[in-house]
């Protein structure tokens, strides 16, 4: 189980890192006030500082709550069964992204739909295959034929000459 204060602490730490990255990136272009107004880096620089400071404060609050088991810290952020559900939904999406980048979005979405429907939701193979095939075909006609927008393609489309 992940406790609420742990999640708060993790998120605050993550955002603090983002803040630091922003500050470093902004310093590349000068963060001062030139005769013609703020320099290009000034605005992101101060935004980065706000993110960093506010996140440090949030982290501190999370730590205090964690040390003193009060109401807030005992709240669960994710119970084990929830974790299973969330990962079961998110990991296939990660798979969709990776597959789409390698094989193109059409193939990626077909694999993803087939996978989630059959393996996860226990759909009959035939019905799932139908949905997994019909969706990319429909998407192809709508997006590339009707609206003439190029979609992310992979080796299959190259082979088909589309």
């Amino acid at each position: 189980m992940i406790a609420r204060w742990q999640a708060e602490l993790g998120m605050a730490a993550f955002l603090a890192v983002i803040g630091v990255i922003t500050i470093i990136g902004a310093r590349e272009y000068g963060v001062g006030w030139s005769p013609s107004g703020p320099e290009p880096g000034a605005f992101p620089f101060y935004m980065g500082i706000i993110v960093l400071l506010a996140s440090l404060a949030n982290a501190l609050r999370a730590l205090v709550a964690g040390l003193r088991p009060a109401l807030w810290s005992e709240q669960a952020f994710l119970k084990p069964e929830q974790m299973r559900l969330v990962l079961g939904f998110t990991l296939p999406i990660l798979g969709l992204v990776v597959a789409s980048l390698m094989l193109g979005l059409y193939v990626g979405m077909a694999l993803y739909l087939f996978g989630t429907l059959v393996l996860q939701n226990r759909y009959p193979v035939l019905k799932a295959s139908l949905i997994a095939l019909a969706t990319p075909v429909l998407a192809y006609f709508l997006i590339e034929r009707v609206f003439k927008v190029a979609m992310l393609k992979g080796p299959l489309e190259a082979w088909l000459g589309l």
């Binding site: 803040g19 922003t22 272009y29 290009p40 880096g41 992101p44 706000i50 993110v51 506010a54």
Partner: peptide, 25 residues
């Protein structure tokens, strides 16, 4: 405050049209 400042930082990524320089890339 974090949310707002993060939004403004994200908006600053890319070409800055006033100075013509690439920020936060």
């Amino acid at each position: 405050a974090v949310s707002i400042a993060l939004g403004f930082s994200l908006a600053a990524v890319g070409m800055d049209s006033v100075s013509g320089s690439l920020r936060l890339t």
